[in-house]
Design a protein around this nucleic acid. Sequence first.
DNA 1: AATGAATGAGTGTTCATTCAT
DNA 2: AATGAATGAACACTCATTCAT
Lengths: 202, 202, 202, 202
Amino acid sequence: MTDAPATPSRIERKRAQRVAELERAAARLFAQRGYDRTNFEDVAAELDLRGPSLYHYFSSKDDLLRRCLHSSSEEVLGRLRALADAPGPPAEVLRALFREQVLIEVRDFPEFAPLFLTMPVSVPEIRAIVLDVRRAHAAIFEDVAHRVVEGLAPDILRVRMSVVFGALAYVPEWYDPAGSLAPEALADELADTLLALFIAER
Amino acid sequence: MTDAPATPSRIERKRAQRVAELERAAARLFAQRGYDRTNFEDVAAELDLRGPSLYHYFSSKDDLLRRCLHSSSEEVLGRLRALADAPGPPAEVLRALFREQVLIEVRDFPEFAPLFLTMPVSVPEIRAIVLDVRRAHAAIFEDVAHRVVEGLAPDILRVRMSVVFGALAYVPEWYDPAGSLAPEALADELADTLLALFIAER
Amino acid sequence: MTDAPATPSRIERKRAQRVAELERAAARLFAQRGYDRTNFEDVAAELDLRGPSLYHYFSSKDDLLRRCLHSSSEEVLGRLRALADAPGPPAEVLRALFREQVLIEVRDFPEFAPLFLTMPVSVPEIRAIVLDVRRAHAAIFEDVAHRVVEGLAPDILRVRMSVVFGALAYVPEWYDPAGSLAPEALADELADTLLALFIAER
Amino acid sequence: MTDAPATPSRIERKRAQRVAELERAAARLFAQRGYDRTNFEDVAAELDLRGPSLYHYFSSKDDLLRRCLHSSSEEVLGRLRALADAPGPPAEVLRALFREQVLIEVRDFPEFAPLFLTMPVSVPEIRAIVLDVRRAHAAIFEDVAHRVVEGLAPDILRVRMSVVFGALAYVPEWYDPAGSLAPEALADELADTLLALFIAER
DNA sequence: AATGAATGAGTGTTCATTCAT
DNA sequence: AATGAATGAACACTCATTCAT
């Protein structure tokens, strides 16, 4: 009888929105300053709240980051998996994945992507969570890459994939959206460059 | 160049050695745990000292990291510059630079390389220092790369270089020296792969 | 005596019942965890309410405990006073008081008795209230005991009474109702033992 | 070589003394206010220190209480065991134990005894420690009491012992050393009263 | 009547840093 | 040179309490 209604009440929608806002604010600060240097007071201040108020929405700092990672990884991994499962020649699928990943980082989820890629995380348990997501993320690319270059020696493939992941992780550290290179142009150029690692006739 | 006397006394040599040992120990911990989670007590313990004793050698935690970065960057940038200035076709020089960088990371300075590449640094001033070193480091590669691909559009070149730096920075995060791939084999394979970004007949 | 109307409305009766339920739940938790470690949220949860709802019934946490103590002490002291005022030889009255006190603690009011006896109370004002009740409680026993041993030196009597109160207060800390000793058997045995302190021919 | 010297250095003696002073101060506050309401700042203030300074001597608040309990229980249990093992008729040994326990509480260790007897402890783990010490303490008395009344039914003996422990635990709650009853007189009177529970010819 | 939201006060704990020895 | 002692600043977290709905 008192189960969660299928259609969330107004109050529940408001709460969910607040949580989403807090997660976005927290993700921004986590990415900028790292987990250790981000405190509840500052996250709360982004929404004109005081630190302890966050405990109405998150049970701990750990939990806050966990939920940031979860919310965004759900969305991001979902989008990537949808592309990975799309029909078409593997090379084109891989290129599409590269494009999408770049756009996710610089255009669609600029706040969340650094959490997985470059956020300084010193606490071991938290780092483990990040690594888990990274593994799931990497698997999507690796599956498709496997289909592109079937006969490649595992060590060689691993090196190629490391170039891919390194390059993709590096994007938020150097790319300036206000510069001369549009996000879509970057995505195209980088996708082509990385794809060449797998289809060049060397 | 430095103000050190030409013939350092025995005491001075001993002190310099101590400093070097401390820097190495600190670099290891910084790289493992990040700047924030590394405390003076633990660094000192690596040499059977107590935390406050470090103040005989370093004026602050900030200073300790700064000196770690300085010492290692001196050495690393020196080695890379020597290679960059060597005669030979630019492409070969670039390949040599890639190889050297990989070997520096995984074989010769495994403790120091993460400081510049992957250490979680939350304090803005420290991060600025790291970025300075990275810029100097990048310049070495970029100069040579410029000579390899003279006519390439700046935006395109920048993307290619980002793949290089991303891939090189990523190495310590995934490479396992105990695995099947020897450091030198990795260096060769990665150097070839990255060089192909600049010499492929696309 | 109290201002309550002669015929409480249905709403008022419902409210009074709610207050009684809350007091009982609170008393249980207070006794188990102590005053400090008992929070409004947990007390409210016992009746499927949320913490702040308790403010409809109690003006503060302090007040909640006060009312717990008041309600139960009314009842308990009433029962004891009725016995103390009953006719009969003082020794028998005293024995009856001991029995009743034991039964109150282990059988009739196991939730409330610890409040006066063993609840950890750190807040000075609260402790003062508890001590007041204890004093009123002690006076009942002391009056009768006085009549049992009329000539006893005050210091000696005080020591004897301390044994009585100590023993009675200790009961909830060791007695296990699920053990081999029934509450009534315990009451009889303890009453006899304590009474012997006053009527032995020493 | 660097093992702890058999003869503690001056610095070690000073530290040990400081720890003892801190334990005494802490025990006083713990007993007065209970564990929850006693904070590091106040304990430290008793020795003109600030709160965090205590972490040089104790690893946590938990540890502070643990060491208070340990230090005092060592001493107290030692004294009681020595008496319990002394030769002589069991009844006299028991009487000596009662006297000693009273003197420990009111004269020799007035700060520490309440820790085991009446300190409000809400934290379950801490309470478990206190109960452990209480059990060891009780065992000393129970062993001797067993030899005094060999044939007594276990339930009856348990009730008698509960009177003993209750009465002894109650002493610090009512006895005023500034009153007309000297500690030794109290000890004698109480010891006689409690002993009568075991040797009366009922 | 009930509660979601919010907060101020308080507390245990960490740690870089200072200083006297 | 080394360190034991001490501390101020910072921070995660708890909770009684208030208030608008």
